[in-house]
């Protein structure tokens, strides 16, 4: 196996609000290999966006990365722990936009409103690469062409508000790709788009990835999108990754009851009209008020009374490589092994 591009272990991002702490990200482990698409999927409030922001150290205050490692294998061969960097320091800034770029759900928040698309892209290129203004401009045209922007030379002079939703998304992707990052973090980039536009943007991301060989960390709540784009999937629930597996295993051999519940509750095209959907009962608990034991147990249909509400499951690696946090899959931890002995 090749060396991973990004290795996250035990990452915790906490928000201290008025004496209480919200554990938005609470001990997440994740690996992204070069050229791979990893989907981070979960419902609102599960911490997936904060997880993404933690990587680039752009967590909004009062949030803070409080523990864990984010090891990035830099182009130079050096390994940096992003979690240990000063969020305002020079090193993280040389990584942001250059080696790790990010796109957002709402392009207007990422694109400056008072600068043309062209000057934003050329600025980004000149910030990271030592090229002339003219060269940067040529590269900007090239990247706009690559994201399928019609008439790129004219669009250089356009302001973001002059573009439609889909075109803005393309412009933002172009901006993110302008320095040929090795990792693209995409935070719900298609959620605000119509399905036809979403399909086009997903195709675009997939094509660009194949062409440029970058890895993509794709954050979404839509399992349909996951199935379309992911190589491997991490399912998050209340700040933790509850299951991590190859995309096919997630959809056809899901181990965690939450993943299974999610899959059963999505309406699919092709089912008969009126066919009942299964649901996960209850709702995501308030992060102030996290259930004891496994945080999913109050909603879990396979809950073992007396165990799941007491024991916090640890990460279990199954023989096929799937990692799951569920007592159903823990090989009798209490009987055979002391807590923590398992990987």
């Amino acid at each position: 196996m090749t060396q991973p591009l990004l290795e996250i272990s035990g990452l915790k991002t906490h928000f201290g609000v008025g004496g209480t702490t919200i554990r938005a990200v609470d001990g997440v482990d994740l690996v992204v290999n070069p050229g791979e698409t990893v989907c981070l999927v979960g419902e609102s409030g599960c911490g997936k966006s904060m997880m993404a922001r933690s990587i680039l150290r752009i967590v909004p205050p009062p949030g803070q990365v409080t523990a864990g490692q984010i090891n990035l294998h830099r182009q130079s061969g050096k390994v940096v722990d992003l979690a240990a960097l000063d969020p305002k320091g020079a090193e993280i800034r040389s990584i942001r936009g250059r080696e790790v770029a990010m796109i957002f759900q709402e392009p207007m928040t990422a694109l400056g409103p008072v600068q043309t698309i062209g000057s934003q892209i050329t600025d980004a290129i000149q910030l990271h690469l030592k090229v002339s203004r003219k060269e940067a401009r040529n590269q900007a045209i090239e990247v706009l062409t690559r994201v399928g922007m019609p008439r790129p030379e004219q669009r250089l002079e356009a302001y973001p508000f002059q573009l439609s939703g889909g075109m803005r998304q393309r412009a933002m992707i172009a901006l993110a790709l302008s320095c040929q990052p090795r990792l693209l973090i995409a935070d719900e980039p298609t959620t605000a788009l119509d399905v036809t536009t979403q399909a086009v943007i997903l195709d675009l991301i997939r094509d660009l990835q194949a062409e440029m060989g970058m890895a993509v960390l794709f954050i979404t709540h839509d399992l349909g999108v996951v199935a379309e784009i992911a190589d491997s999937v991490a399912v998050m629930y209340l700040g933790r990754v509850v299951e991590r597996a190859a995309v096919d295993d997630i959809f056809h051999n899901a181990r965690h009851p939450y993943t299974r519940g999610l899959l059963r509750s999505i309406p699919r095209l092709g089912i008969r009209v009126g066919e009942e959907l299964d649901t996960i009962e209850g709702m995501v608990p308030n992060p102030f008020n996290r259930p004891s034991g496994c945080s999913f147990h109050p909603r879990c249909v396979e809950m073992i009374p007396g165990r799941c509400d007491r024991v916090d499951p640890s990460r279990t690696r199954l023989p096929d490589g799937t990692e799951v946090r569920c007592l159903l899959h823990e090989p009798h931890r209490q009987e055979t092994a002391p807590a923590g002995a398992l990987q």
Partner: peptide, 11 residues
């Protein structure tokens, strides 16, 4: 049947 499961309510 779809009633959310009544779990320990904290007022």
């Amino acid at each position: 049947a779809t009633a959310p499961k009544a779990h320990a309510e904290v007022e």
